[in-house]
């Protein structure tokens, strides 16, 4: 579909949220929560903070909740009965004001959840999600979208991408059929775009420090350079913060709860950075040291995912680095990887 350009007046955003709510859809948007900004459901645009640089957590919860029921079971008489969760009850949802990195991340998540075997849970949620992205007017020292093939105004993954123009009004690029369907909820708000609407000058300047292909190749070439990985990861604590805030990390655990006669099977986030992630029953741990786990994180995103799923596993949002309690800065360490001699 060819991208259509429209103008959404700054006052019209409130009306758009109302119309979406009125159509029975839920709206999630960045909301200021004290020192942090997080995606949360909103009833009116006044609750949203569209001037944010980055939320602490990504919005992946909407597609891949941190805890999700994948089965329930109940013993009836002698027989065990299992039942699927009712995914038809999922609400139609619009996420409004998500930056281009996060919108692109949906593709990476999807590549995992639809790799040969189709994950019905992810797909059902995705089907009901419409992404109204928001170009970035500002970045910070952690952002590196431009180094991973994206940019502050990329349309990838957005159904509609908004860019706040100098006038304060929004340029709306309608990218997909889903975006078009959303416009249909309030067609009167989407005015013809002025011919001279200048998107580029409204975008943040994000430096391109490397290319993701280079990063992947170098990481692979230096795989056996233990001094490099162990050196970078010495201060890493092996927590799940980086993976849990990351919009593309998809690793999960499966846990049963309840009794042997009645209960549920849940899946919940997990991380390759945890020391026990890979531990065998014998106690043998294939990734015994944090250096190997940190290497896995970078390799999975920059080498394995491109090789196997034909997508990159990092969109340069910088969340992992901001959230890391010990300042493991992924961008800096990727640059290290490229610069250090092997």
């Amino acid at each position: 579909m060819e991208i259509e350009r429209r103008l959404l007046k700054k006052e019209a955003l409130a009306g758009l949220v109302e119309k979406i709510n009125a159509a029975g859809r839920k709206v999630h948007a960045p909301v200021c929560e004290g020192a942090r900004v997080e995606f949360a459901p909103i009833d009116s645009i006044a609750e949203a903070d569209l001037g944010y640089v980055q939320t602490t957590q990504s919005a992946k919860n909407l597609l891949f909740p941190r805890v999700e029921r994948i089965l329930s079971f109940k013993r009836r008489g002698g027989a065990m009965e299992t039942a699927d969760p009712d995914l038809s009850a999922l609400p139609e949802t619009v996420v409004l004001g998500m930056h281009p990195c996060d919108a692109a991340a949906i593709g990476s998540l999807g590549a995992i959840f639809t790799w040969d075997t189709q994950d019905a849970f992810f797909k059902a949620r995705l089907e009901k999600l419409t992404v109204v992205g928001l170009s970035c007017a500002a970045g910070d020292e952690y952002c590196f979208c431009a180094s991973v093939g994206l940019g502050p105004g990329s349309t990838e993954g957005s159904d509609i991408l908004l860019t706040r123009l100098a006038s304060g009004d929004f340029l709306a690029e309608i990218v997909t059929a889903k975006g078009k369907a959303l416009v249909e909820l309030a067609p009167e708000l989407f005015l013809p775009a002025p011919a001279g609407a200048d998107k580029d000058s409204a975008l943040a300047r994000i430096e391109k420090s490397f290319t993701r292909e280079e990063a992947g190749e170098r990481a692979k070439a230096r795989f056996d350079d233990d001094a490099l990985w162990d050196g970078q990861a010495l201060r890493c604590l092996g927590c799940g913060a980086c993976a849990y805030v990351c919009p593309t990390c998809a690793c999960f655990d499966i846990q049963d709860e309840g009794t042997t006669s009645r209960g549920v099977r849940l899946r919940c986030w997990d991380s390759c950075g945890f020391p026990a992630f890979t531990i065998h029953t014998s106690g043998h741990n294939p990734r015994e040291e944090q250096g190997a786990r940190w290497r896995q994180r970078l390799m999975h995103k920059f080498s394995y995912m491109p090789e196997r799923q034909d997508v990159f596993g990092c969109v340069g949002c910088g969340r992992c680095s901001r959230a890391c309690p010990v300042d493991m800065n992924i961008k800096e360490h990727l640059i290290d990887l490229l610069e250090a001699k092997s």
């Binding site: 957590q57 941190r66 604590l237 927590c239 799940g240 913060a241 849990y244 986030w269 959230a323 309690p325």
Partner: peptide, 10 residues
């Protein structure tokens, strides 16, 4: 809480 265990690990 997202059970990232950063508190514990730190």
């Amino acid at each position: 809480c997202i059970k990232c265990y950063a508190c514990r690990q730190a």
